[in-house]
């Protein structure tokens, strides 16, 4: 269903949500936009390109306790609170759908991720303009057909709101000033970077190209790209023992394929010890391996890896050179 809702009514709505203590929304701090728990809806930033970091870290923590152990038992703790995310951009909602493919694979579900997903409501907000590194249009991640409970389109004086789930319907039913509409929301995104499927397909013939050595020569292997990428979810599993050494926690930590030790084995051998191999692996995983395994790109075109690269490496430019 589609409704038009006044901006004032949306503000009231967010007021009530924030009073619940469960609302997480974009906030501008210094010049950076990030997602934070909101106490007062006046804090919310509506006019932003995209957040510096995606909401990935709310679903796959930087450091997550898998279980606690002591001398004779293993205890997992999977209590999670309900959360409402307002203002997630459509591309970042797609990033959750991508992660779902890997982490909610039937029979092999990641219980920690699943619980966080199930206990989260997604109120997405369509962008009004593109950033300089966005290429969501090329990947079809600029809008949503699924993955949201509510989807807001800013139409200037009012919002068009789409409902995408029963829970979304419940919430909308409590809004007083709303009107059903058949209008299509406007679609203001332009001036994006472009990456065609034909160009992506060329990866299949480019594995042995010397472009990877050339383009990776200036890469610092700093992992900035993977850290800020909303679909990069690799992790390490480590133990964090208490001082008595008999009890402690097993935790997982953020890992990056750009770091050398990522493929290191006992005995010292590193499989992808050359920088160009690690560089190539990231791009192939995003645009070929994941496509072959799960049927979609593992990139949502947010451009964060480009924006946050200290060497100004631009993956889209590289792909367009193939």
């Amino acid at each position: 269903m589609k409704y038009t809702v006044s901006k004032n009514e949306v503000k009231n709505f967010l007021d009530k949500l924030s009073a619940s203590g469960n609302l997480i929304a974009p906030v501008r701090e210094n010049s950076l936009v990030k997602f934070k728990k909101i106490a007062n809806p006046d804090e919310i930033e509506f006019d932003y390109i995209n957040s510096k970091y995606s909401i990935k870290k709310y679903f796959l923590l930087d450091k997550e306790v898998l279980f606690e152990y002591d001398k004779d038992s293993i205890k997992e703790n999977i209590e999670e609170k309900q959360r409402i995310f307002f203002g997630i951009r459509p591309c970042d909602v797609h990033s959750l759908l991508v992660m779902d493919k890997l982490l909610l694979e039937e029979g092999m579900e990641d219980i920690y991720y699943k619980n966080k997903r199930k206990n989260s409501l997604i109120f997405a907000l369509k962008c009004s303009k593109s950033g300089e590194n966005c290429f969501c249009r090329s990947l079809g991640t600029d809008d949503l057909k699924e993955g949201y409970d509510l989807l807001f389109y800013d139409e200037g004086n009012y919002y068009i709101v789409k409902t995408g789930s029963e829970k979304g319907d419940n919430f909308i039913s409590k809004l007083e000033e709303k009107q059903e509409t058949e209008d299509e929301p406007s679609d203001p995104l332009e001036n994006q970077k472009k990456l065609s499927q034909d160009q992506i397909e060329k990866l299949r013939e480019s594995f042995n190209s010397d472009i990877w050595k050339k383009e990776s020569a200036i890469c610092f292997s700093c992992a900035g790209c993977t850290t800020t990428c909303p679909t990069c979810g690799c992790f390490d599993v480590k133990d964090d023992p208490d001082l008595d050494f008999e009890s402690g926690k097993r935790i997982r930590l953020d890992a990056s394929c750009q770091l050398k030790n990522y493929t290191g084995v006992a005995g010292g051998h590193v499989f992808r010890d050359e920088r160009s191999k690690r560089f190539k692996h990231r791009i192939y995983h995003k645009f070929k391996y994941f496509v072959d395994q799960y049927g979609s790109e593992m990139c949502i075109g947010c451009g964060r890896c480009i924006t946050n690269c200290p060497a100004n490496i631009d993956m889209v430019k590289i792909l367009n050179k193939l």
Partner: peptide
């Protein structure tokens, strides 16, 4: 190099 053993952590990928 393996960490999770169940195809989630990413370390043991070789190609696809």
């Amino acid at each position: 190099m393996m960490q999770c053993g169940v195809g989630k952590c990413g370390h043991c990928m070789v190609g696809d």
